[in-house]
Design a binder for these strands. Sequence first.
RNA 1: GGCCCCUUGGUCAAGCGGUCUAAGACACCGCCCUUUCACGGCGGUAACAGGAGUUCGAGUCUCCUAGGGGUCACCA
Length: 485
Amino acid sequence: MTVRTRFAPSPTGYLHIGGLRTALYAYLFAKKNGGVFILRIEDTDQARYVEGAIEKIYSGLKLAGLNWDEGPDIGGDYGPYVQSERKDMYLPYAKQLVESGHAYYCFCTKDELEARRAEVEARGETFKYDKHCLHLDKDEVQRKLAEGHPYVIRQNIPESGEAGFDDVIYGRIDVDCSELDDTVLIKADGMPTYNFANVIDDHTMGITHVMRGNEYLSSTPKYNLLYEAFGWEKPVYIHLTPVMKDATRKLSKRYGDPGFEDLLAQGYLAEAIVNYVALVGWSPGDDREFFTMDELIEAFGIEGLSKSPAIFDEVKLRWMNAEYIRKLSPEDYIRHAEPHLAEADVAHMDKAILARILQPRTEIFTDITGMVDFLAKLDEDYSIDLFTNKKSKTNAEVCRDVLADVIPKLGALPDWTEECLHDFLIGYAAEHGMKNGTLLWPVRIAMSGRSVTPGGAIEIAALLGRDEAMRRLNFGLEKLSFSLV
RNA sequence: GGCCCCUUGGUCAAGCGGUCUAAGACACCGCCCUUUCACGGCGGUAACAGGAGUUCGAGUCUCCUAGGGGUCACCA
C-alpha cells in the first residue's frame, strides 16, 4: 500500500516553525517510504481566513524544498484539496451518521448554549452538552427542519464505555466516553468543523499516516469513534510534540516569534533552517547533524521522534547557519551578501576580499551591514583610547610615532595591492624589530575607528583604496598629535 | 478543576535492564594559532525531577508525588 501523508494548514497567517516541522516530517516520512505527500488547505472557518495566507504557505513550503505531489494548485486524483471547495461532500456523510444513530440534529442556539455553559461554569463544573436534542422525537426534528430552523449536527458519543486509539509515538491512549462531548460535526452555516472534515478528508483522500501536532491528542478518540461508525479503516496516528519558545511557552506568532519567512529575511539560509528544525524533536540516532534533504529522507524514521516538547534554540540555529554559510562558494556567498553590502554602501569594493574576510564571520546575513559600514564612512569621533592595546604593546604615543614614520612610506608605495601592502608592512616591522601588532594595530585603528573589525589592517587598506586609506591614516595621526600636545 | 500526555547537563539529544564511574552537538570557560575579532585546533565545567517498589542488577519496568504541557468552541 502506498504511504500517503498530508500537511493540512489553515490559512490564518504565515508558515510558522512548528508547522514547517510538521510538514517536513510528513514529507520525509512519505518520501522515505516511496509515498505521496499531499497539501490540503483547511479553511472551514471563513471568519479566520487571512488574505494571502495560502500563497505564503505555498511559497514557504517551496522555499523549504517541501514539494507536494497533490494539492490545490497542482491537483491530483483526490481533489479538490481545499475544504471549502469540498463543502458539499460532508453533509451526506453526516446524514449517514444520523441515520445510523451516531449523530443527531441539534437546534440549540449559540445563545442558549452560552447561557447554559455560563450557568454550569458558575458552579465550578465543566460544561458538557447534555444531549438535549438527541431526545427530540423524529417528527419534531422533521418539522423543525421543514420550518427552516438553523441546526447543527452533533456526534452522538456513547454515554459509557471507552474510546481510544493507538499512537505510534505515545502508544495506546484510552479515555472514558463520559469525558467526551458531543462535538459539532456540521456547523449552522453548513460547513463541517475541523473535527469532522479531517476525518472525512483523510479517509476520502486515502491518507495512511496522520502526522499532526499533539494538541489533537485528546480529540483523536472521537475521530476514531467516527471511523468506527463509518466502518472505515483507521490511519496510523503520529502525534508530534510542540516546538517551544521556552519551558512553558510554545513558539507562536502571537508573541512575535519569527516564522519561516521571517528567518529567511533575517539572513538565515532555507537549508540551514530546515536542517535545524528537523533536529528539534527528532534524532537520527547517531551523531550526524548536517543533512541535505535527501539525507534527511534517507535517515528519517518515526523511532527517532521525541515524546517531549523541544525548545527552539536560535543560538544553535545561528551556529548551524554560520556553518552553512562557510560552506558556500565565494560566489554564492557574495550573491547572498550583495544586498547587505549595498546597504552598507560597500558593494563597489573588492568582492574577493570582502568575501574572504566576511564569510567566516557571518552567522546570519543581516550581520554584514554592521560589520562593514565603517568602510564606507569613518566615524571620526572614535576614542583615542582605541590606540592603546597591551598585547600589541601600543598606546597613543607609540601609535603617533609609528604612524608618523610609516605614513609617508605607505604614501610612496608603488602599488596599493594586498600583496604590496603586506610585504611592505611585514617587512617594515621586521626591519624595525617591532611586533607586527605594534605596527598594524595603529594602522588598523586609524583606518577603521573600531577596536574590532573583520579582516586586518592589510585587507582594510586594500578595500579602502589608497586615497581614502591615506586620508584616514593622516586623520588618525592628527588626532593623536592633537591629543598628546 | 476533570481527563490525557511529558520529565537525561542552560539547550537539542544518544541511551530501549548489565558494556552508564551516561555519547555527541550548541552555549559557556581555559589554552593554542594570530595584525583586532572571528575561523580553526586542543582541553574543561555541567544531567538521569523526587520517593517507593520489581529485579542479582534500573537512566532504562511499575506506582506515587512534584513540575510542565495539551484539551475541555458552531477554532483548527
